[in-house]
């Protein structure tokens, strides 16, 4: 469907929309706390860009912690509230954790559950995060296999005629099988009436019946 040409309205607009994190939650005399933890690097060793590519985000970047050389991290200036701590690394995945700071400054870490948000499944604090797995971004290409090659239509097209050409004449040359074949042929010949004959008899028969019926009607 194409858009109507007669009625239309401007789609573009000159609006300034700003999303700001900063204005929210910031009260000057609020107590602030720190969230601490450490990350265990993958067992295979520390990759070269490990320190610059590993970022620790609280609430998707509202607070950012940077990894130290000893793989520990600290979030500073965090007011009371609930924070989702996630480790972002392009190669390894880590499980996110929810950390809650109550009004008295007590910290509690628990497993992140977005569906049942009230379930408490405690996690050790200070956080100790271990890599879950290497992230798989790519589909694995199908491997070349001999069976795939053999069953491909191209190869079948080459092989089947070959079989028919090379093997069938040899089979036919064998006198016993020839006899058998002839026997089979004769069987089929006797059992199976000619298709055209069947059809012809069927139609002619039908016509006869029809004409009979007509005659009957006429007689009445």
């Amino acid at each position: 469907m194409e858009y109507p040409k007669l009625l239309f309205a401007a789609i573009s607009l000159s609006l300034l929309v700003c999303f700001s994190y900063g204005q929210r939650d910031v009260e000057p005399n609020q107590d602030v706390y720190t969230i601490e933890g450490r990350i265990f690097p993958p067992d295979t060793g520390i990759p070269p860009s490990w320190y610059s590519q590993t970022r620790i985000l609280a609430n998707g970047g509202e607070y950012i912690a940077i990894l130290r050389k000893d793989n520990s991290f600290v979030f500073n200036h965090v007011p009371t509230g609930s924070y989702v701590i996630e480790v972002v690394n392009p190669t390894y995945s880590y499980e996110p954790v929810r950390v809650e700071i109550n009004s008295k400054g007590k910290l509690r870490a628990r497993k992140l559950n977005y569906i049942q948000t009230s379930t408490v499944d405690p996690v050790a604090y200070p956080l100790a995060l271990t890599p879950l797995a290497r992230i798989r971004y790519f589909q694995i290409r199908e491997q070349w296999r001999a069976t795939d090659f053999l069953y491909s239509p191209m190869v079948l097209m080459m092989v089947l005629p070959l079989v028919i050409i090379m093997i069938l004449p040899k089979v036919m040359n064998d006198p016993e099988t020839r006899k058998e074949m002839e026997h089979l042929n004769s069987l089929t010949r006797y059992d199976m009436p000619e298709m055209s004959e069947v059809l012809a008899s069927f139609f002619t028969g039908g016509e006869k019946q029809k004409s009979k019926a007509v005659r009957k009607k006429k007689a009445q």
Partner: peptide, 17 residues
């Protein structure tokens, strides 16, 4: 800003000192 910090970075690999 509201979260003033002093950070020092390793110049070679960017780790937080």
């Amino acid at each position: 800003g509201p979260k003033p910090l002093v950070r020092a970075f390793d110049p070679i690999n960017g780790a937080l000192a």
